[in-house]
Design a protein around this nucleic acid. Structure first.
Length: 224
DNA sequence: GCCCAGGGGGCTC
DNA sequence: GAGCCCCATGGG
């Protein structure tokens, strides 16, 4: 398949929602912390956890490395799964110290391929979190896939009911120009669409910017 | 009060 | 490599 259909989807979403200005964070390190905290949870839950960390000056590598895990867990409670996420945050800063002397710039100056493999080897960092870190903290040209991405592109008829993460990522990378700002906006726009309209079949048809492309238009029912 | 969201680890087969 | 359960909160 060529790139035209994917660019058409992008254009419809962009014209409808406008630029999303992702990622909502002030520093690359804050992006990484947010990417771990938002796992399996909506961003709304994460905001309070991030505010707690910010108030304690813990959105910096050294400070996060110094705080004990239990205290950390208590602060990130609103984000859910707080014990495992505290362990994940600790695992990341331990890796950053061990491999880069705590210098995020050093980590983010490595080539995409090897760095992605490295991130995936860290406890708590799977494919989606790795790609979020690479794209939104490091400005690397990779595509972030999530459950919303699968849901939307399954509805549109691009994806089968089940599809592996890596297959979906490659699907986009092979069909889109390697443009970091395009990848940045595309994922953010999919997220926005899925949050606002894709809970059920019916509202997808009314007011959905992709309704003209959707083979499911007119079908009522639950999310698959 | 109940059900749902949804990424990653760890286990089983 | 697919299927299952676990982690915990907040919102409908």
């Amino acid at each position: 398949m060529e790139s035209a259909p994917l660019l058409k989807v992008f254009r419809l979403l962009y014209d409808h929602f406008g630029p999303r200005h992702w990622w909502p964070a002030e520093t690359p390190f804050e992006v990484i912390v947010g990417a771990i905290l938002t796992q399996a949870v909506s961003w709304r839950n994460v905001e309070r956890a991030v505010a707690n960390l910010k108030a304690r000056g813990l959105l910096e590598v050294e400070a996060l490395a110094a705080v004990d895990e239990e205290t950390l867990a208590g602060l990130i409670r609103p984000a859910g799964y707080y014990r495992v996420k505290a362990r994940k945050l600790k695992a990341f800063v331990a890796y950053l110290h061990g491999s880069y002397g705590g210098r995020l710039e050093a980590m983010l100056s490595r080539p995409l391929g090897p760095l992605r493999e490295e991130l995936l080897s860290i406890y708590g960092i799977g494919p989606e979190t790795a790609d979020s870190i690479l794209l939104y903290a490091g400005g690397y040209p990779t595509f972030v896939v999530d459950a919303y991405t699968h849901r939307v592109f399954h509805r549109l008829g691009f994806f089968p009911a089940r599809m592996a993460y890596e297959e979906m990522r490659v699907f986009f990378l092979e069909r889109l120009p390697p443009d970091v700002s395009l990848f940045n906006e595309y994922h953010a726009l999919i997220d926005e669409l899925a949050k606002s309209l894709c809970r059920r079949w019916e509202p997808l048809c009314g007011g959905c910017p992709l309704a003209t492309l959707c083979p499911q238009a007119g079908i009522k029912g639950e999310t698959p």
